[in-house]
């Protein structure tokens, strides 16, 4: 069963890539443009740490690692499962009908049916950022892979969870946009900036710490406790997202929008 789903996923990704390659210039402009975009954004931190050196134990190198891991996790997430950014819209506009009419796992099929080319730009930029930070030893690469997978799962699970609220709300597009915005914004800032309530929020309601700060910590210095924390958080979020999506699906109704995908 699992093998069948993985083969299906690989076929979807292949089809997405072939579709993107049809518009090669647009694809490349998105990839290179996103890398340039990230580099320009990161200039802020270069200017900031040039002036202020160190803020609560965070310096430029820590920022390279944090930015790198968030970009890799987010980039891989939206490149492989691009519809996660539009799931609320898919639910609200009845486009789930198409996926429900096919004998494939609905959520997996919806999420992987779309690929954001710019995600590949984020992913590549993230790798470069981690290289600049000097994390390139074999064990560091293993930690990066682990951290990136967890970062991606946390992001995808959180977005699926929020977008799935559309089953109850009708239209959760704005909520999903704001939640995604908050998740990325907070993930890209040093966790040490936040105390008490702030930290509590970033480890629970908006779990941005598990997308950025905790995976970054794992890359800086391996620790079983940090790994267990990440594993547990990713597992809980994923289980919650799947539960909410499945419960929501039972409530789903539409005016029959079955149509051939163009």
């Amino acid at each position: 069963m699992m093998k069948k789903e993985i083969t299906f996923l690989l076929h979807l990704w292949r089809a997405n890539l072939i579709a993107a390659m049809e518009f090669r210039v647009a694809f490349l402009s998105q990839v290179i443009g996103m890398m340039l975009n990230n580099a320009l954004y990161f200039l802020f931190w270069i200017i900031f740490f040039d002036r202020f050196q160190n803020v609560r134990g965070w310096g430029l190198n820590e920022m390279f690692i944090l930015f790198g891991i968030v970009a890799v996790g987010y980039g891989a997430g939206v490149f492989l499962f691009g519809n996660v950014m539009q799931l609320a819209d898919v639910i609200a506009t009845g486009k789930l009908d198409y996926y429900l009419s096919l004998p494939r796992p609905v959520l997996l099929h919806v999420l992987a049916s779309r690929s954001l080319s710019s995600g590949l730009g984020d992913f590549t930029y993230g790798i470069l950022s981690l290289l600049v930070a000097g994390v390139a030893s074999p064990d560091a690469i293993a930690r990066i892979i682990l951290g990136a997978i967890f970062s991606m799962i946390v992001f995808l699970a959180f977005m699926t969870l929020i977008n799935s609220l559309g089953f109850w709300m009708g239209n959760a597009t704005m909520l999903a946009f704001q939640a995604g915005n908050a998740m990325l914004t907070f993930a890209l800032y040093p966790i040490t900036l936040f105390d008490g309530t702030g930290k509590f929020i970033l480890f629970t309601i908006i779990p941005a710490a598990f997308m950025g700060a905790v995976p970054a910590e794992l890359i800086r210095a391996f620790d079983w406790f940090t790994l267990a924390q990440l594993f547990f958080a990713a597992l809980v979020l994923l289980a919650l997202a799947l539960f909410v999506f499945r419960r929501g699906l039972r409530r789903y109704e539409s005016g029959s929008a079955i149509q051939i995908q163009s």
Binding site: F23, V25, A26, S29, Q30, I32, G33, M34, L36, N37, L40, Y41, L43, F44, I47, F48, S118
Partner: peptide, 24 residues
């Protein structure tokens, strides 16, 4: 000319962020 302008838009947004004084 190019049809796709997303990359130009992102880069302009970053100029605003930094050189426009939005972040600092």
């Amino acid at each position: 000319m190019t049809e796709e302008i997303a990359a130009f838009e992102w880069i302009y947004a970053k100029f605003l962020l930094l050189l426009g004084g939005l972040l600092i």
